[in-house]
Amino acid sequence: MSGTSLDGVDGVIAAFPSTPTQHPVTTLGSAYMPFSAPLRQELMALQSPGANEIEREALVANTLATHYAACVERLLADAGLRPDQIRAIGVHGQTIRHRPELGFTRQANNPALLAELTGIDVIADFRSRDIAAGGQGAPLVPAFHQAVFADPQQTRVVVNIGGIANISVLHSHASCDVIGFDTGPGNVLMDLWIKRHQGKDYDANGQWAASGQQSQALLDALCKEDYFAAPPPKSTGRDLFHAAWLDKHLASFPQISSADVQATLAALTANTIADAIARHAADVKTVNVCGGGAYNPYLMLQLAQGLQARGLTATVQSTEALGIAPNHVEAIAFAWLALRFDQRLPGNLPLVTGARDFRILGALYPGS
């Protein structure tokens, strides 16, 4: 999995049980491979219209496939496994456009090349069938969250804070449907801002944000974005929350320091997540965070305080408490979606994505 943070590839080898009484998933190996600066720059550039896009996307897709193949090679070596012991590779690709309102989403990827390089069956293109069925094509992870994290004794919320943040509301009552949607920016605006002012890819531990003071006036202006008030199903990405969106709002607040802007952007992420949880999961007992945001203690504190300010007493913790490391959840989710395809079972939740019905997601590229 490589997400909207555009930082690199998270890979896992996941083993799923043959009986429902076993633990829902076991991680046999993991690897992280960062993107080079030129690859990250090109992926960032492809987020917006530009010259010669078709050729540039094709070339970056080839580069990604070789990157994914190197990740697979490392995973196999570290786990002591052979390619023929792997049922399939589930690969998401790198989202460069997400426009479900126009009937498409675009992930740069070359799964045929990945199959050729690894000799392993590859399952890819998970989002397009849901969109073809009238859905958003996202978020897809709530179905996985339900399968591995749901607790019949309590309502849990799983929050993924990558570039974009999304939540899954897993009710304790089996009669209640899973709720899931993108809440808005996760790390994307904070990463953008610190890159602009300090040349860093991200705000380690939220230290820069913690050094600033939140601007309530700026936060109020940012929160007026129509997306936040829109009802689910909904999904978003860099197509909405980008540099021009932020700069448009900042133009009215020239006096705010760069550190104060960073603190306010952290508050935007935490508050929009907290608002969504308060609106859709008032009985929540635990909020379990995955993605890069789980490693940002300042952001985790802001989320806990945001929930408390809304009258919620839920415990905020990482998914490590549920047995899966925060940086492994998304990759395991797409392994699970590949498993669903392999078993010819649906991978979407229509009430989450807005699709007309359940659909089998993905396309197969045989390894031989």
Rank of each mutant, 00 (worst) to 15 (best):
T4R: 03
T4D: 03
S5K: 07
D10S: 14
P17Q: 11
Q22L: 12
H23I: 05
M33P: 00
S36R: 12
E42C: 07
L43T: 04
P49M: 13
G50P: 11
N62A: 13
L64I: 14
L64G: 01
H67P: 02
R74M: 07
L75I: 09
L81D: 09
A88L: 05
H92M: 09
E101N: 15
A108Y: 03
L117Q: 15
G119Y: 08
I123M: 06
Q136L: 10
Q136F: 03
A143L: 13
A143V: 07
H145M: 04
F149P: 00
I161V: 15
G163H: 08
N166V: 07
N166I: 09
L170I: 03
L170T: 00
S172W: 05
A174H: 11
S175G: 06
D177S: 14
F181A: 06
P185Q: 09
G186W: 05
V188M: 14
V188G: 01
M190K: 08
L192R: 01
G199E: 08
A210K: 13
A217L: 13
L218T: 10
D220W: 06
L222Q: 05
C223F: 05
P233Q: 04
K234T: 04
R238T: 03
R238A: 02
L250H: 04
F253M: 12
Q262Y: 05
A266T: 12
N271H: 12
D283N: 14
T286L: 06
N296Q: 12
P297Q: 08
Y298A: 13
L303D: 02
G306Y: 00
Q308V: 04
A314V: 04
A321K: 14
A321E: 14
V329T: 05
L339S: 01
G347K: 01
G354W: 03
D357L: 03
D357P: 02
F358Q: 15
R359M: 11
P366G: 09
